[in-house]
Write a protein that binds this DNA or RNA. Sequence first.
DNA 1: CTTAAACCTTGACGTTGCGTGAAGGTCAAG
DNA 2: CTTGACCTTCACGCAACGTCAAGGTTTAAG
Lengths: 251, 251
Amino acid sequence: MEYTVQTLGQLAGISTRTLRYYDEIGLLKPARINSSGYRIYGATEVNRLQQILFYRELDVSLDTIKAILNSPTFDGATALKQHREKLLEKRAKLDTLINNVDKSIEHTESKANMTDKEKFEGFKQKLIDDNEEKYGKEIRKKYGENAVSSSNAKVKNMTEEQYAEVQKLEEQLFTNLKVAMKTGDPAGELAQKAADYHKQWLCFYWDQYSKEAHAGLAEMYVADERFTAYYDKVHPGATKFLRDAIVIYIK
Amino acid sequence: MEYTVQTLGQLAGISTRTLRYYDEIGLLKPARINSSGYRIYGATEVNRLQQILFYRELDVSLDTIKAILNSPTFDGATALKQHREKLLEKRAKLDTLINNVDKSIEHTESKANMTDKEKFEGFKQKLIDDNEEKYGKEIRKKYGENAVSSSNAKVKNMTEEQYAEVQKLEEQLFTNLKVAMKTGDPAGELAQKAADYHKQWLCFYWDQYSKEAHAGLAEMYVADERFTAYYDKVHPGATKFLRDAIVIYIK
DNA sequence: CTTAAACCTTGACGTTGCGTGAAGGTCAAG
DNA sequence: CTTGACCTTCACGCAACGTCAAGGTTTAAG
């Protein structure tokens, strides 16, 4: 029995375009081309197409299918096992994605009942987390793999007392910063005290303190206008002043 | 603070190409273009980019992100919930895929120890399943949704006795067919008996018998050379004869 | 025998989210 | 003035086809 693109397509439940494409990429060549240039497929091609569709249904890429079918040494079962691993990875990614979406939904829903200040708290935490993640890689390289991992848990498990302490620390930082700025010297004792307060405050969020990350966050404060606005409420230029103090502090 | 493509890119951890692309598709336009044609971004754009990246990380398409951010009536939480549904669907698909791959691995591994006849058994079943699926839609339309669903379970739960019965039926079909062909009349009593045997045999695989599907399978037998070869072992032309008998039988 | 329907062919663009040059203008530093 | 690091606008490439478009072939019908 011989088939043209359409008859074979109907037999296999695929489009003629697909068959032409498979021809084009050399995945399934017709048995021969007739005098009018029509593609003619035979029994061998039907078998091969059946195999192709089998793998395709398992979401194997056409390139991989080609490799599997073209090399008789390349074993189908092994290929499928490798493919299985890929699928498992994909599912793991999807799972974390879904988790994150869930969190975000929760987050945005609770955000509706938040005061502006609380909103900013959330925003601050996000940026801190982001920064921690950014520097996390380097920290991990330096201090080992699991030093960083418990960071998020730390923030979430904070008790109310601890939270109050964080708030208090931030207030102290603010008042201290205000006074320190009058001296105008970021290397002075007062400014350095402010930098230390900031470190203590930060340590409530970060499991693993690192100087580089601290400096990185300070730079981010300056670079991000929302932060600048937040700290500059203390006094114009406070953000940069704090940054300078921190840069000196970590040396 | 103003940013060029590179500075903003570094701030956000994305490439300059990405920023240009977002401009191109109207997702994130720069605040202004300076005299040299450079893109200049401001605070507003930093905020918007932050939102974009937030959704992007959750695997939302750029088109959807644009819709979310551009329409203030379009609520973020609702969008995320919809997105969550999509992700769940994806995961469900992945799960079935992984299941199928697992089955296939098992299958191909056991296939190594199979006789040719057993291999053909598997092949036959697959084609029967395929056909059932093909006609399943129509059957479902006609007979309701859940008539078909238990089909696969049926085959799998077949006992050894039942399996033996299927084999016996097939043998009877063969011997009957052989005799019937000598009459040369597909409408004759013997041929109709053969068609009936085939129906009985088929009913072991299909939960829901339908005349159309039966005829469809018969046509497939004739169209597929492997089947033709299988049935023609009985006698040359046996496949077509059986097809003709079935076509008459179902009328 | 002609004509229309139903095939077939080869381009070639669109899809998604950029990566990766290419070719050329701009700007600050040495 | 030159170098190097920026910036710009094309434009192709990726996966796996869907979807016209323009034109040749075959087949069934009138």
